[in-house]
Amino acid sequence: MKILVVEDEESLAQVISESLVIEGYSVEAADTFVSAMQKLLANDYDCILLDIMLPGGSGLDLLRELKSLGKSDNVIIISAKDSVDDRVTGLDLGADDYLPKPFHMAELTARVKSVIRRTAMPDSHLIVVGNVSLAPEGRTLSVNGQSLAVNRKEFDILAYLIANRNRLVNKASLAEHVWGDRIDQSDDFEFIYSQMKNLRKKLKDNGADLEIQAVYGIGYKLVQA
């Protein structure tokens, strides 16, 4: 799986690349409008992370070019300009998703995986890890083929952790993803714990071979037992 990161801020491009490489993707980076255009014309990518403000031009123009080539549906716009207009224009031009900067890497990973899953395997509606399978559209969960009832938040937590399996997921990132970013300053996210406890108990009671580990003081990590 090949991913192109079009981002002019070098350190951010680096962090994104490193994080995606850990996920097993092969990552290329472009830091100007021209180099991005060259790479896009020469190669096919499974996912493109596109910054809007680039030296030499606008990411939206790149998007227009991609759209005319019929290749705009695996683009995630990453932009600090989180204005409504940019978002609407970007999505109108066929971009799949819009992620305002700054973002957590776990959030990016989840979005990238979602884009790749939809474009590479449009017929597969299930995410299967070990004996657990997740249906994102129906928001249902089953373990060993047995359906398991979870509430919306438990489902969101699990989906997010599964998207970032074997990776450390920061509490703040998890809270923001599941509860929304308005919950942000609430007592260091201790409240996550009760939902997490319920989810763990349900997984364990139903014999799921997934384990959610707490990483002391930082967050959680989902591993296959």
Binding site: A80, P102, H104, M105, L168
Partner: peptide, 19 residues
């Protein structure tokens, strides 16, 4: 605005370090 990205990157780097 300018502070956002460096702060986010620092957090990301620390997370990568822990991993």
């Amino acid at each position: 605005h300018e502070l956002q990205t460096p702060v986010a990157i620092s957090i990301n780097r620390l997370e990568l370090l822990v991993e």
